[in-house]
C-alpha cells in the first residue's frame, strides 16, 4: 500500500496554478468532482516533463529544478532530474534507487512511517477517497480555473513534517494540475508537469537501477 501510495503521489502531478479567492465547494459540487478524481487513476502509464519550485522564506525567488518523470501505475516510477544537476530516483519494489551522477544509493521506503502516512493521504485524495478520516481532514474549494482539495493531517507527528497538501485539478481536463506540499514553516514545494503523455508504452530502460 505504501509503495502504491508513493507512486500515486507523483502519478497525477500535472501543471500547477493556484489562484486567490478560492471559495468552498457546496455538497452538490463535491459529489461530481469526486467522481472525476476517481476516474483519473485509471491512467496506466504517464510520462511528462516536470518542474519543481521550492519557496524558502528568506529567498526572494523560487528555487527551480526540472527533468522528466516516467510512471507505470502502480508498480514503478522514474524521476530524472536534468537541471541543475543530473540525478535520478527510481521507485520500485518498496525501495528508492538513487543515482547521483554515477554514485548509487538505495533507500528502503517501507521503514519510513511518516512518509508512508503522508503518501497515503495524497494517494487517497487522487484515488477519489476524498472523505475525512481519523488520519486527515479534507476541505474542498474552487476558483475560476481549478477545483482544489486541501488535505490536512490530524496526527501531531505528521504535522511536524507537513502542514497541508493542496491538490489543484484543472477544470478543463479534470486532471490534477498542481500538488503543493506546505511545510509547518510555511516553506513549500510545488510540482508542475508539462507535455504529459498517458497510457503510452514507456521504455523499460528508464526503470533500470
Amino acid at each position: 500500500m505504501s509503495f502504491k501510495s508513493i507512486l500515486s503521489i507523483f502519478f497525477l502531478l500535472i501543471s500547477v496554478q493556484l489562484f486567490a479567492q478560492d471559495r468552498a465547494m457546496t455538497a452538490t459540487e463535491i459529489a461530481p468532482f469526486k467522481k472525476v478524481v476517481s476516474n483519473a487513476v485509471k491512467v496506466k502509464t504517464l510520462s511528462a516533463d516536470f518542474t519543481q519550485y521550492k519557496k524558502l522564506g528568506f529567498v526572494d525567488k523560487e528555487i527551480i529544478s526540472s527533468g522528466k518523470i516516467y510512471v507505470v501505475h502502480p508498480e514503478k516510477m522514474s524521476w530524472v532530474y536534468s537541471s541543475p544537476t543530473n540525478y535520478s530516483m527510481i521507485f520500485k519494489n518498496n525501495k528508492i534507487f538513487i543515482n547521483d551522477q554515477g554514485k548509487k544509493n538505495t533507500v528502503d521506503v517501507g521503514k519510513n512511517k511518516q512518509f508512508e502516512k503522508i503518501s497515503q493521504m495524497i494517494a487517497n485524495g487522487i484515488a477519489g477517497e476524498l472523505d475525512s478520516s481519523k488520519d486527515y481532514s479534507i476541505s474542498y474549494f474552487q476558483n475560476t480555473g481549478f477545483n482544489i482539495v486541501q488535505v490536512t493531517p490530524k496526527a501531531k507527528d505528521a504535522q511536524k513534517y507537513i502542514q497541508q497538501i493542496i491538490l489543484s485539478f484543472d477544470k478543463k481536463d479534470n486532471q490534477v494540475a498542481e500538488i503543493k506540499l506546505l511545510e509547518p514553516s510555511k516553506n513549500y514545494t510545488r510540482f508542475v508537469l508539462k507535455n504529459i503523455k498517458t497510457n503510452q508504452t514507456i521504455n523499460e530502460q528508464v526503470f533500470a537501477n
Binding site: L56, L181, T189
Partner: peptide
Amino acid sequence: LSDLGQTLID
C-alpha cells in the same frame, strides 16, 4: 533541502 524539496533544516 532534500531532493524533493523538503526543508530539512533552516
